[in-house]
Every structure is written in structure tokens, then in C-alpha cells.
Amino acid sequence: MWFYITAIPAVFFYGMGKGGIGGILGMLSVPLMALTVPPIKAAGILLPLLCVMDVIAYYYHRKNCNYTILKSMLPMALAGIAIAAYFMGSMPSNVVELLIGGLAMAFLAQTFLIKSTKVDNPIKGHLLNALSGFASTIAHAGGPPVSMFLLPKKLPKEQLIGTGVVFFLVLNFTKLIPYAYVGELEFENLITSAILLPVAFLGVRVGVLLVNIISQEMIYKISYIVLFFAGCKMLYSGIVGF
């Protein structure tokens, strides 16, 4: 019972993020579910749901993806997945949380205080995309690095959402390989994922409906606000983990 009290809102919020309302909203899902089950089990239950939500979101947003930018993002992101697969299960999750939280705060400080974000720094971009693949594999927390890469480009809201949707579609289906290898796609977890599937459908649909009535400025504001709170949460969890 307690598991579903945390899992239902976690999956719903992730679905809303997939629908377009703040792509990093889903960062809250694994920590929320981890209140009742081990984090790696929570991630294993979520992954099949993420793949289903990605397919639904792809149907709505596929035409808006900036495929030129996507092609530049994927090679290093896939490399990040490969690196994470090697360390999967051995790297403390709080170390990953500290790294991502610190980067999120550094990005926000640079954007709003220093005002000197360089959009076309290829080395920085490659590192952010690799970090996204790595963090997405360890804890489904690849949203902040992608936001740090995409937000400074000031894309139209449709392209911002569409590019993120297709990016994570590729990443999440690729992640099925290491998750299956470490045994987190076992029958029990898949049954739990199937039970939560209607919540995932509902979350994505709500996100899609809302994104059609919310302005581009509001989408960016939501993304920055969620990035701030997610970064704070990850920093706190990382520090407490020590």
C-alpha cells in the first residue's frame, strides 16, 4: 500500500514531464519511490513505463524535434550510458546526486547572475550530453544536463520539448539492455510496471493538454524552477548520503 502511495504520484509527474510540462519534472520520481523500495528497484520499475510514455510523447511531439541538434547529442549520451552500465550497482547514488545538483546550480547561477552562458561550446555540450546518459542510466536523472544544454539555445517551445522527447526515447530504450543484464527487469517488477501503466498514460495526456495552452515563456520558467528545486533536492540527498 505504501509503495503505491508514492509510486502513483511519481509516475503521474513523470508522465506530465514527458507530455511537455517541464521535462525534468521526472527527476522527483525515483527519490519519491525510493521512500518505500530500494532506488535501483524503483528505477527498474520505472524504466518500462518510461519507454511506454516516450512512445506516447513521441507520437505528439515527433514533428517538433530539432534532429540536427539531436544528432549532435546522441553519440556522447550513448557513451554515457555505456560508462554507467559498467559502474551500475557499484557507484554510490549520492555521488551522482551531488554531481548533478552542483552542475544544475552552477548553470542557474551562470544564466541568471553572470549572464555569460556560451551556447556553442562543443566541449561543454559533449560533457553535458555524456553526463545526461550517465545520470539517466544510474537514476533516471538525465534531465538537468539536457536542460543545461538545450535551454541556452532559446529554441521555440515546440522544438525544446520535441528534441527532449526524442532524445530520451532513444536513451530509455537503450537502457533496457543494462537493466536487463543486472536483473531489474524481472517478472515481479514488470507486473508492477503494468499496474502503474494507466497512471503513465494519464500523466502524459495531461502534460500534452497543458503544453498546448501554456506560453513559451511559461514553459521556460517552469523548466528553470523545476531545475532549481531538483538541484536543491539532489544536493541535499547527496550530502545526507554521506
Rank of each mutant, 00 (worst) to 15 (best):
I8S: 03
I8W: 01
V11E: 00
G15D: 00
L32S: 08
L35V: 11
P38D: 14
I40E: 13
L47G: 10
L49C: 09
D54Q: 06
A57P: 05
H61V: 06
R62G: 03
C65P: 08
C65L: 04
Y67H: 11
I69M: 13
L70D: 05
K71L: 14
M73E: 07
L74M: 12
A85L: 00
A85V: 03
A85F: 00
M88D: 06
G89D: 08
S90G: 04
N94K: 13
V96E: 10
L103R: 08
A106D: 06
L108V: 12
T111D: 12
F112Q: 04
L113P: 06
L113T: 10
S116H: 13
K118W: 00
D120F: 13
K124G: 13
L127P: 00
A130V: 07
F134Q: 01
I138G: 03
A139W: 02
A139P: 08
A139Y: 10
H140A: 14
A141Q: 05
M148N: 01
F149Q: 07
L151I: 14
K153P: 09
K154H: 13
P156E: 09
Q159R: 10
G162N: 06
F167I: 04
N172R: 02
F173L: 12
P178R: 00
A180S: 15
G183T: 04
G183K: 01
E186K: 15
T192H: 09
L197N: 00
L197E: 10
V199Q: 03
V199I: 13
L202C: 15
L202W: 11
G203V: 09
V204L: 02
V208W: 03
N212T: 13
N212I: 03
I213K: 15
E217C: 05
I219E: 07
I222T: 05
S223K: 14
I225T: 15
V226M: 11
F228R: 00
C232H: 01
Y236H: 10
S237L: 15
G238R: 10
G241Q: 05
